[in-house]
Simulated scan of single mutants.
Amino acid sequence: MFSFRAPPTYPHAEIARALGISVGTVKSRLSRAKSRLRDDLTSGINDGGGIHVATD
């Protein structure tokens, strides 16, 4: 099983400050990245390939 989580030691506000972007942008980019990863992992491999993708 594969689980994707942002490191709990990096709050959204801290990431935003480090990158010079808003907290909302951090959240949307993380959400988009998780969605793309989920799509990539499930595309064509949920046909018995042995990979299970858990969603929140």
Rank of each mutant, 00 (worst) to 15 (best):
T25G: 00
A18N: 05
L37T: 11
T25P: 00
F4G: 06
G49D: 14
I15E: 07
T9P: 00
T42G: 11
A16G: 11
R36C: 06
E14M: 14
T25S: 13
V26A: 06
L30H: 03
I45K: 08
I21F: 04
N46F: 11
R29C: 04
T25I: 04
T25A: 06
A18P: 00
A18E: 12
D47I: 01
H12Q: 14
L41R: 01
I21P: 00
G48D: 09
D47N: 04
G20Y: 07
L19S: 02
S22D: 10
S31D: 10
S43D: 15
T9Q: 13
G44I: 07
F2P: 14
I15P: 00
M1V: 02
H52N: 01
A33H: 11
G48Y: 01
K34L: 14
I15D: 04
V53E: 03
Y10M: 15
I51Y: 08
D47C: 00
T55K: 15
L37V: 13
P11S: 11
K34E: 14
P7C: 07
G50N: 05
V23M: 13
L30G: 01
E14K: 14
I45S: 07
I45H: 15
P7R: 10
G50T: 08
L41P: 04
G20V: 06
S3R: 13
S3K: 14
A16F: 05
N46T: 13
G49L: 04
P8V: 10
G50E: 12
S31F: 04
H52G: 02
S31N: 09
R38T: 15
A54L: 05
M1Y: 05
R32Y: 12
P8K: 15
G48N: 07
I51W: 05
S22C: 04
M1N: 11
G24R: 15
V26F: 01
D40T: 03
A6I: 03
A18K: 14
T9M: 06
S43R: 15
D40W: 08
P8N: 06
D47Y: 07
P8Q: 15
V53Y: 12
K27Q: 14
I51P: 00
G20A: 10
T55D: 09
P7I: 02
A16Y: 00
A18V: 03
A16I: 11
A16D: 02
S35H: 11
E14V: 11
N46V: 15
S43T: 12
P11G: 09
S28P: 00
S22M: 03
S3E: 12
G48Q: 01
D47P: 00
I15A: 09
L30K: 01
S3G: 09
L30F: 13
R38S: 14
R29V: 10
G49W: 04
E14G: 08
A54Q: 09
I45Y: 13
T42C: 13
